[in-house]
């Protein structure tokens, strides 16, 4: 019982934890929908100076400049695709954490699915072959 309570508390604490963010929370965009979009995009854009941080997390000057540009574009009413295109045109696909579907990375996207299909075919063939075997041959 106590153990369950402790566990529950720990899980609750986990929910309370939050990641550090370089975005000044008091510096919100007026329109809540635009603010949402701004936060969502900055979380998905890689800070190229500190590559394992998003620009939402990074305090690097370049990240601040990119946040400013994204903010400006969001305020101008541009949509997510246009803003991301703006960044990719300048910094390449690497700036997005979620890679885009491109001809050269098709293996990355379809590879796992293809492997699974191959696996299932092999499994099906194996099962069918075993089914056609005389029963006593499989016996120890």
């Amino acid at each position: 019982m106590i153990r369950a309570t402790t566990f529950g508390l720990l899980i609750g604490l986990l929910g309370l934890s939050f990641t550090a963010s370089a975005v000044d929370p008091s510096d919100k965009l007026e329109d809540p929908i635009q603010n949402e979009l701004y936060l969502a995009i900055t979380k998905e854009v890689r800070c190229l100076v500190c590559q394992n941080q998003s620009i939402a997390d990074s305090t690097a000057p370049l990240a601040a400049d990119l946040r400013r540009e994204i903010r400006r574009m969001v305020e101008e009413g541009q949509d997510e695709t246009r803003i991301k295109n703006f960044l990719v045109e300048r910094y390449g696909d690497f700036i997005l954490y979620r890679p885009r579907f491109r001809s050269w990375n098709i293996v990355l996207w379809l590879g796992p699915v293809a492997l699974m299909v191959v696996g299932f075919i092999a499994l099906a063939m194996n099962i069918r072959r075993r089914k056609s075997l005389p029963i006593d041959e499989d016996a120890p």
Binding site: L48, V49, P61, L62, D65, L66, E69, R90, Y91, G92
Partner: peptide
């Protein structure tokens, strides 16, 4: 000064 052209050129350092 304000990294406007820098961003247009994809400068990151």
């Amino acid at each position: 000064r304000d990294n406007v052209t820098g961003i247009d050129w994809g400068v990151y350092g």
